[in-house]
């Protein structure tokens, strides 16, 4: 077959159906929005219960994480995510799903070599690069602070 990779790439682009962007975005908007709304309801409730703002936020995150873990264990989070896409990926519940799902999946390879070693196989990069960014910002902030008149 006399065909360049560029030509085949063009053929492939024509033959491959594109993602249904509008539909995907509607799902992501409503499911993601609903999860954030639930977060706001929780945060307000914890605030009314007398927690200070940072504690109320932390408790909100922890509650959402626990809820996501339960739904993940039941297999429902995956079912929702197969439609909601980024709507379930981007909120903190998606992070929890990324931690809990390998823990369940690789349990059969042992508590240490399976659960322990594989738990952060998906979420690990988020922690690694989030931490790196925060450390860089911390160092920058340390040296910028005197200049900001602090």
């Amino acid at each position: 077959m006399k065909l360049s990779k560029q030509e085949y790439d063009r053929m492939n682009r024509q033959a491959s159906p594109p993602s249904p962007v509008a539909k995907d975005c509607l799902w992501a908007f409503f499911v993601g929005g609903a999860i954030c709304l639930l977060g706001e309801v929780l945060r307000t409730a914890y605030g009314r219960a007398g927690f200070i703002l940072t504690d109320a936020s932390a408790l909100t995150s922890i509650t959402l994480v626990a809820l996501s873990a339960v739904l993940t264990a039941l297999g429902w989070y995956q079912k929702l995510a197969s439609r909601a896409g980024a709507g379930t990926l981007v909120p903190i519940t998606g992070f929890a799903n990324a931690v809990v799902s390998p823990a369940i999946e690789y349990r059969v390879e042992g508590l240490v070599t399976g659960v322990g070693a594989k738990m952060f196989v998906i979420a690990g990069p988020v922690i690694v690069w989030g931490m790196m960014a925060s450390v860089v910002w911390g160092v920058v902030y340390y040296f910028l602070r005197p200049m900001m008149g602090g």
């Binding site: 799902w27 993601g32 709304l37």
Partner: peptide, 16 residues
């Protein structure tokens, strides 16, 4: 909270 949270997810979906 709903609109902004949803919008941030839409950005993620567009990137995907």
């Amino acid at each position: 909270a709903f609109v902004v949270g949803g919008a941030l997810c839409v950005i993620g979906q567009l990137l995907i």
